[in-house]
Design a protein around this nucleic acid. Structure first.
Lengths: 134, 134
DNA sequence: AGGCGGTTAACGAAAACTGTTTAAGTTATT
DNA sequence: AATAACTTAAACAGTTTTCGTTAACCGCCT
């Protein structure tokens, strides 16, 4: 039923969508509700997103540990720490402060509350200055 | 904890492995057994494989439905059917009989028993003669 | 033979995922 | 304004993953 991340249902829906069918038309064909088709389609795109992120991680696996942002840290201090540590390694970070904060928040939304870090965040950097968080 | 397909544990193990540590060394660091490190690493590679397959599917999403191999069909008849239908569409299949059978079996091992099909198999083809099965 | 690196199988518990339905909400088109 | 297309959220039951343990197994090396 499953190849890769996508269930049989999800592949089915994506194919019909590629053919230009509406969610209602697909629902009729596969004998379910249009709401369900919507859910399945959404789940499919979530899975595709996950697949991309996974391979993305592989490409940044050559990164080395830069520092740990401790719980309770202010985001602006975290940025300073990251720049400081990167400088020690003589690596130029690929992001300015603003983008760095955005990347931090996007990487793990649950770990941040306003300006503060709610859980330790590991920071990794590769020789190109690309960052990733774990 | 999860980004993409990989759990935090899995990313952790992959990073340490990239640094050249043995499973036993990693087990000591993360306080578990080497058997567990092995399992986690294997699961990580399974997930990476899944991610690749998922994106692979996306690239073949432009395929159109070619035919349905009905349950109980002999594999060799299935091959004939696929060639026949492809010819109707004036598309040259990218595989000879042998490779076609291999691709069929690999695509969904559970659906085949010896020379026979145990479950309906949908066959799709794109304009390059590339096949995929659902 | 014994140590080391790696793998596998079996099993339990907790967590996450899947397909559905129902119901309420957009947005776009006519 | 009305309809169609689409989105979202909550809740459910069933299934699958994940992490961990224990114990056994293989190949290689000195």
């Amino acid at each position: 039923m499953k190849q890769g991340l996508l269930t049989g249902r999800q592949r089915e829906v994506l194919r019909y969508r590629k053919q230009g069918l509406t969610q209602q038309q697909i629902a009729d064909i596969i004998h379910t509700s249009k709401a369900n088709v919507c859910t399945i389609e959404k789940a499919a795109y979530d899975n595709i997103e996950k697949a991309k992120e996974t391979l993305e991680f592989l490409y940044t696996l050559d990164a080395t540990h830069l520092c740990t942002i401790k719980i309770g840290t202010d985001l602006f201090d975290a940025v300073g720490e990251i720049y400081g540590e990167a400088e020690k390694l003589r690596i130029k970070v690929r992001y300015d402060s603003i983008n760095l904060i955005n990347r931090l928040k996007e990487a793990n939304p649950g770990k941040f509350k306003g300006r503060f870090v709610r859980e330790d965040v590991e920071v990794y950097i590769n020789e190109d200055g690309e960052l990733c968080f774990g």
